[in-house]
Nucleic acid binder design. Structure first.
Length: 586
RNA sequence: GAUCACGUAGCUCAAAUGGAUAGAGCUACUGCCUUCUAAGCAGUAGGUUACAGGUUCGAAUCCUGUCGUGAUCACCA
């Protein structure tokens, strides 16, 4: 066997250029996978080279092509179309690739090994998680998996907003109208229970401001119910015993509700931060910045930074009464996270409505002179909306995550009962329903809006989680069948002439590390999701057109089973990184 | 109004960061189960990539402008 088989064509091509044209260091080469309808497997784009070498593209193509072909002892062929040098793998080369993939090392990556902290989900402690949180949490969770898969050490955190006026609103209403009921008394999830009182407040408030004239909007802040909420906040700030007790109690209800939702979704965190613990941090840094004249103090005592030179406005960092703001906390928290945990990167998964906030935050930290500013990343994602438009809590059209989860599982059960589901278990419906839901959310590019139609629910055909699940179960079922009718032989595959389906499968399976890396570099799980779909689709073409098991041709059946097995593993590996469980039979 | 993001088939989404003839699924119609799982496969139909310029060997992708949608523009979070 020749070593060249496991050396990449890219490397040999690079070598050819320094050898043939004496260019050092060799220029960045533009490789791509050959387009579907062109002959070939890997393509080198010659236009940029032609400029550097100052020769006609075709001439360069022949020279490089021949060099590579010879170095691979003719097991790579090539053709030139326009400015594209297409390398064509021969039969043997494909078989070598397959054998390479059978080595478990193919799936072990150490692309990079950094300590990365990733913050996601981060809900308010006064209502259940909704579709927006669902997208956020699924993104964060799967991205964490992807980061780990390429070798990073990942710390997953959520930060719960458990203090402030909005928390006092639900507390107030429970005090007034809750008649001492607990979630248990009414058989409700704790977060839904508390959310009920939060919405009650909003309704009462809307009712009170209805009569306020538009000419005097300032009156809105003076309506009785809001005054009451503010006085409760004051009590909380003064650590009034009763208020603290109620606050803790209600928060615990909410957290137990969150826990259930997260558990259903298979989402977890390494730890949770609470704003009530950290909202004061950052004040020292603001004082320090003031001392260093990076910030300035206004007449009323408030502290600001002027960011107009950077295209932003003036930003308030500490109120005139010296209380801190969200940004104050975020400054302090970022500094703390780097100092305490010695992290190399910090990723915030937060919706795009906070793009400006993060731009300003990063700019302020830069002005303060922190060198790790470029290690911060805000992964911004578009909103989830309904066909009727945006979800707005005031409009009352917020779809909570629990309802969707329950609904999906129900749909799965209903649909699958009609089919010949082999594993008629509750657990299977759950996996199938949630898998469809998660895939639906993750296959879409984070920066694109998701329009979620609860009536249409989620498709089970075509580019869906269910399609992939079905393909996977089919694969496992074929493997079982194989052992019933065929025996295992040793590799003797070089006598086999591969057909197009087999070549396509090998080609796409070989892309897995490339796709995973791309997914990581772009912080984008949708790339992986779309790839898994592609793998499934190609497999189904293969399956429908070729008989995979044939007891009369044991060698070929063995070869195909190895290919099938790798396909199944790749699908499972990828889906698991998306946070989706797979079932073996359906 | 200003800033930012997005605009691809009737609908939902792709397109290897500037590459070859822009691809899938849904929907509609036509075929394929005595044979490894038909939740599948094969086929037909559907496009001036919002519009107009520009940059170069080459643009859905980069630049400028216009239009449309959304987000942000608090001593809110």
């Amino acid at each position: 066997m020749n070593d060249h088989f496991f050396q990449s064509i890219e490397e040999i091509t690079k070598e050819s250029i320094s050898c043939l044209y004496k260019i050092n260091p060799s220029p960045k080469l533009k490789f791509q996978y050959t387009k579907k309808n062109c002959l070939g497997d890997l393509t080198l784009i010659l236009f940029p080279l032609s400029k550097i070498i100052n020769k006609h593209v075709e001439k360069i193509g022949y020279e490089i092509g021949n060099y590579v072909k010879n170095r691979f002892d003719q097991s790579i062929q090539f053709s030139i179309v326009g400015g594209f040098l297409n390398f064509i793998f021969t039969n043997d080369y494909y078989i070598h690739i397959l054998m390479n993939m059978l080595n478990p090392d193919f799936y072990k990556f150490k692309i990079s090994s950094k300590k990365i902290m990733i913050e996601y989900s981060s809900p308010n402690a006064n209502k259940p998680l909704h579709l927006g949180h669902l997208r956020n949490a699924l993104l964060g969770s799967s991205l964490s998996n992807i980061l780990e898969a390429v070798g990073h050490k990942v710390t997953k955190i959520q930060i719960i907003n458990d203090r402030g006026i909005h928390i006092c609103k639900s507390m107030l209403c429970w005090k007034k109208f809750g008649s001492d009921q607990t979630p248990n008394d009414v058989q409700m999830k704790g977060d839904h229970f508390v959310g009920k009182y939060y919405h009650l407040f909003e309704n009462l408030y809307q009712n009170e401001i209805k009569h306020i004239s538009k000419k005097d909007p300032e009156q809105k802040v003076d309506v009785p119910i809001l005054k009451e909420a503010r006085s409760l906040l004051k009590k909380w700030e003064n650590r009034d015993h009763q208020t603290m007790h109620l606050w803790k109690k209600m928060n615990e209800w909410v957290y137990s509700g969150f826990e259930k939702t997260y558990k259903d979704l298979g989402i977890c965190f390494d730890w949770t931060e609470y704003e009530s613990d950290i909202f004061q941090i950052g004040r020292d840094i603001v004082q320090e910045g003031l001392y260093k004249k990076i910030f300035y103090q206004k007449q009323d005592g408030s502290i600001c930074i002027d960011l107009t030179k950077d295209g932003f406005d003036e930003k308030l960092l500490l109120r005139s009464d010296q209380t801190s703001l969200y940004i104050t906390q975020d400054i302090g928290n970022a500094v703390e996270r780097f100092r305490k945990h010695k992290i190399d990167r910090l990723i915030y998964i937060v919706g795009k409505e906070q793009d400006y906030h993060f731009q300003v935050l990063f700019k302020i930290l830069k002005r303060l002179g922190y060198l790790w500013v470029d290690k911060l990343h805000h992964l911004s994602y578009e909103m989830v909306s309904l066909p009727s438009g945006k979800m707005k809590s005031r409009k009352g059209n917020v779809v909570n995550a629990d309802n969707i989860i329950v609904n999906m599982i129900k749909i799965a059960e209903k649909k699958f009962l009609k089919k010949s589901l082999i594993d008629k278990k509750k657990e299977s419906y759950k996996i199938l329903g949630l898998g469809a839901l998660k895939f639906y959310f993750l296959k879409i590019d984070p920066k694109k809006e998701i329009i979620f139609d609860t009536n249409k629910s989620i498709d089970m055909k075509g580019n869906t989680g269910t399609y992939i699940q079905y393909t996977y179960s089919r694969i496992r079922s074929i493997e079982k069948k194989f052992f019933d009718v065929c025996s295992i032989t040793h590799y003797d595959w070089f006598t086999i002439t591969l057909n197009t389906y087999e070549k396509c499968m090998i080609k796409i399976l070989q892309k897995y590390p490339f796709v995973l890396n791309k997914s990581y570099l772009n912080f984008n799980p949708s790339l992986l999701a779309n790839y898994i779909y592609e793998v499934s689709k190609l497999f189904n073409h293969f399956y429908q057109n070729k008989k995979l098991i044939n007891p009369k041709n044991v060698i070929r059946s063995n070869f195909r089973m190895n290919l099938v097995h790798i396909t199944g593993n790749t699908i499972k590996l990828g889906m698991n990184l998306l946070g989706i469980d797979m079932i073996e039979r359906m």
